[in-house]
Simulated scan of single mutants.
Amino acid sequence: MRILFSSLPTHGHTYPLLPLAVAARKAGHEVVYATGADFHPVLTALDIEPVAAGMPISEAFAIASKAAGVTDPRQEGPAAQERVIAGVFGSAMPRRFFADLQDVVTPGSFDLVVHEAGNPGAGLAARRAGIPGVCHGFGRVNASGLGDRIAGALGQFAAEIGQTVPERHANILGNPYLDIYPPSLQGPDFLATGDRVELRPVPFAEPGELPGVVGERDRPLVYLTLGTAFGTADVLSTAIEGLSGLDVRVLVSGGRLVEAAALGQLPENVTAVSWLPQADLLPHLDLIVHHGGSGTTLGALGAGVKQLLTPQGADQFNNAEAVVGGGAALSLQPGELSPQAIADCARKLLEGSEFDAPVRALAQEVAAMPSPEQIAARLPEFAG
């Protein structure tokens, strides 16, 4: 078969799809991947043909902010922020992907289109061309509140191009849904609806070397990250101050938003890097302190690592609620962040045996989900 995968050009939306895309290619399918140019080198290294589509997330936010009459969403209240986010994922991005794929996704060009849940524009392009579509999840499904706003914006765009979307979970477009979230943590309303196909979340990272501190096992190893889109030096510094007072080694990844130099002079037991292969690091950790992004959350669950979540925005609060509810983590809201709070929660997680059984159970649940190779073998079913 000839299969098009497509995702928004961000790590959190692209990396979750790559294990299945690679498995499909290894199964003998011809795989093409439509996303932003920044990710094309990664795709080429995986022997996957890239196609340019979409726009940087910053550009989409600028478009949506202007449409909502908002100068800086970060300085606005929740209602204004939701209007902007709905404009990004329900209008700006879908419109751009649909337009960019007009000449790529044509009748007979592909046997199947796999679009991720944040990219219904590619799914609508497939529908217009009469090509079956499958929606690939990247996290927990939540249709209320912000999800309803996104559905409204997406429904308006769909009507403009002569299409309709479901009232609930509009971004899935009524397609079969490849669900990488553990069922015990998935939204209960979603579990009972739709055409769900479980798919094991497999962390993906570009190849790289792990820092030497990973091999120093004289003390527990704690990893601190705020991901690729929400990192700030202030929050990282607050967490470093709290963690460094514990009898642990701390490894910090500033990501593309925070240079290691911005963190100042670091304590003896803290090592800061700009990037590392997180998927390779996870099995070595005793604790991960992070923002609650879906990729990091799911990777830690699969690796059986205790988590302290400090959600900053987007779907991170939803993930924190789920994992804390599953007994495998603690969380701190933005207004609760302080060095002492970080230290207290980290100490409780490292020393508390009550987290061990839930962490093991969730890791076993993830391991029991069908692998990308198993689902790749089923892709012809979805093509009809």
Rank of each mutant, 00 (worst) to 15 (best):
V31E: 01
S294F: 08
V359W: 00
P372N: 11
A79K: 14
P283C: 12
A272L: 04
P339E: 12
D189L: 09
G139F: 07
G162T: 13
Y33L: 03
P19H: 05
R95P: 00
G90R: 09
G145H: 09
V113G: 04
E259D: 15
V222D: 00
H291E: 12
G302W: 10
R127W: 03
Q364D: 15
G36Q: 12
E268I: 00
D315T: 11
V252I: 08
V305P: 02
T44C: 01
P339S: 14
R256I: 13
P78Q: 07
D179H: 05
L236S: 09
E241Y: 03
L4T: 11
Q278N: 10
A117W: 01
A24H: 10
F230L: 11
R196K: 11
Q340D: 15
Q307P: 04
H284G: 01
V114F: 11
P166I: 10
N171M: 15
L4D: 06
A279W: 00
M93Y: 02
S294A: 15
T297S: 15
L8H: 02
R96I: 07
L199N: 06
P339A: 13
E321A: 15
I57S: 00
R2E: 04
T225F: 08
S6I: 14
P183I: 05
A34D: 08
D47Y: 01
S353V: 09
D47P: 00
Q186L: 04
L178R: 07
G121M: 05
R128F: 01
S237P: 01
R168I: 08
L199E: 03
D234K: 14
L236G: 08
H29K: 04
L301E: 07
Y177C: 02
V213P: 00
T238R: 10
V84Y: 03
S65P: 02
L224V: 14
K348V: 03
G227W: 13
P41W: 12
L4Q: 08
V31K: 02
S65I: 11
P78T: 08
P311G: 12
F382P: 04
P277K: 05
P201Y: 15
E373S: 12
S371N: 01
R200K: 05
V113I: 13
G299S: 04
G69M: 11
G384L: 11
A363Q: 13
R83D: 15
